[in-house]
Simulated scan of single mutants.
Amino acid sequence: MRIVFMGTPEFSVPVLQALVDAGHDVVAAYSQPARRSGRGKAVTPSPVQARAEALGIAVRTPVSLKDGGAQAEFAAFAADVAVVAAYGLILPRAVLDAPRLGCLNVHASLLPRWRGAAPIQRAILAGDAETGVGIMQMEAGLDTGPVRLEGRTAIDGKTAGGLTDELSAMGARLMVEVLGDIAAYPAVAQPEDGVTYAPKIDKAETRLDFAQSAVAVERQVRGFNPPGAWFEVGGERVRVLAADVVPGEGPGPATTGPQQGPGLRRGTVVDEALTIQCADGLIRPTLLQRAGRGVMTAGELLRGFPIPKGTQL
């Protein structure tokens, strides 16, 4: 098929590569504009732009698709279909209708659960047992379109990063399957029941909230890795990249310290192994990272950065 691809982050790259490997004619790749990033704030193209350029595919990076000129340029590619994977811009009706077969989206959830921007993280934070990918025929609503094909996987202790990689590969495979014989995969309307929304992650959410249960805190650790959930001690942020829920209740509630913000309370370190009392249960970080340092175990961290029993985090 003649395809326009639309995507931005690393999640999208395997989908683009799979289309090329399957022999489709990807005539253009749309991505969000290059942004400044890193310590030097250098202008860095998105992962999709970088891969598309390496593949010799024409790249377009409009700030918006709302104006007539951008819409006319898109329509001029005369695509059979647009394939969308975490593009990050709203597609107006004129764009949705331009390809002969419309626009197909790789959405990383089991629709209608977790429509919106952060379905992978929200599924982990909510304690969902499974998630997946849907190949959705796009329409004007927010992830409301009918689904042509779906794949599932157990969450089973996975981090957001690991699950992102898995669902990206799954979405690439399913998209190629659908495009191989699109008539064999009719679009099926989403159920009306069970709709939930996955708003974009706010940076404030990544601070560990020890007013929750230890189970919920451990979900925070997995759901925000990468880049990593964190606590503060001695004026320094420490990222927690992995943690275990520990049996037992500890000596008391994690609410003895002052409030750290709406809904946030301090956790208390209850032993010399960095076990932390939560509102319900105990959690023990196993992989951590200080600013400017490499990832280390709790034992390695404590040897150079003591956090004694009784410390409020």
Rank of each mutant, 00 (worst) to 15 (best):
D244L: 12
A34Q: 08
Q259I: 15
L110W: 02
F11A: 14
G116S: 08
A82K: 03
E218W: 09
A78Q: 13
G127F: 08
G7I: 15
R222N: 09
V233H: 09
G161Y: 02
V147S: 12
G261R: 00
E166D: 14
R39W: 11
A117E: 08
G127M: 11
W230V: 06
D21T: 00
V245A: 03
D80L: 04
R2K: 15
G151Q: 15
T8L: 05
D156M: 10
G145Q: 00
G234Y: 04
Q71M: 02
V83M: 01
R290H: 05
P99A: 04
I120E: 12
G116D: 00
A184W: 06
L287A: 10
D165N: 05
V43K: 11
R284D: 04
A118Y: 04
A54G: 08
E139H: 06
L302M: 11
R265A: 14
F231T: 11
V195H: 03
G263I: 02
A72Y: 00
Q17C: 01
V178T: 14
V15C: 15
P186F: 02
L302I: 13
Q260Y: 14
D193K: 09
T255D: 15
G157H: 09
G141D: 15
P251D: 13
G134F: 03
C278R: 06
A42C: 03
L91I: 15
I124H: 05
V84N: 10
D181R: 09
L104P: 06
I283T: 10
Q190D: 03
G40Y: 06
L174F: 10
A29E: 00
F5L: 01
M6Q: 11
R303W: 01
R290E: 02
R100I: 05
A184I: 14
G151D: 13
G252T: 12
P306F: 05
A291E: 15
S213W: 15
K66S: 08
R265N: 08
Q121F: 06
R219A: 11
P191K: 04
P308W: 03
